[in-house]
């Protein structure tokens, strides 16, 4: 599992590559905390290359969402793959973590 990020004009994009499981979840929290602490509270997590997420990965996304909102921003997810979509729907979290087609679209409306 790997995470990298890039600060763009109006948001920061965090790329998640690999399985977002209980091993990777704490790393995602660290990376997003770092991004938010550096001043980017509008965060997109690009999940194009994440073909698996478990409830720990989902918990990390929820924690990151709260961290971004506490800093006055928001966290959105993009390019969700079928297994991740399934986990979001079965846990009813698809209504909280809105999925956008691409990272560019995530903050495209504001």
């Amino acid at each position: 599992m790997q995470f990298s990020y890039e600060v763009k004009d109006s948001y920061a994009e965090v790329k998640s590559v690999g399985r977002l499981n209980m091993v990777a979840a704490p790393k995602l929290r660290e990376v997003v905390a770092e991004v938010v602490a550096a001043g980017s509270s509008r965060v997109v997590v690009n999940l194009a290359e994440t073909d698996f997420m478990d409830s720990s990965g989902l918990g990390a996304l929820i924690g990151c969402l709260k961290a971004a909102r506490q800093a006055g921003g928001d966290l959105r997810i993009a390019a969700v793959q079928p297994q991740v979509k399934m986990v979001l729907e079965l846990t009813n979290m698809d209504r909280v973590l809105t999925a956008y087609a691409t990272a560019e679209d995530a903050f495209g409306d504001d």
Partner: peptide, 19 residues
């Protein structure tokens, strides 16, 4: 049972049952 939407853990078993 599925916890509320703010919870950061506790969904594992509910998810297993749904799967």
């Amino acid at each position: 049972s599925m916890p509320d939407s703010e919870a950061e853990s506790g969904r594992g078993l509910a998810l297993i049952e749904a799967l």
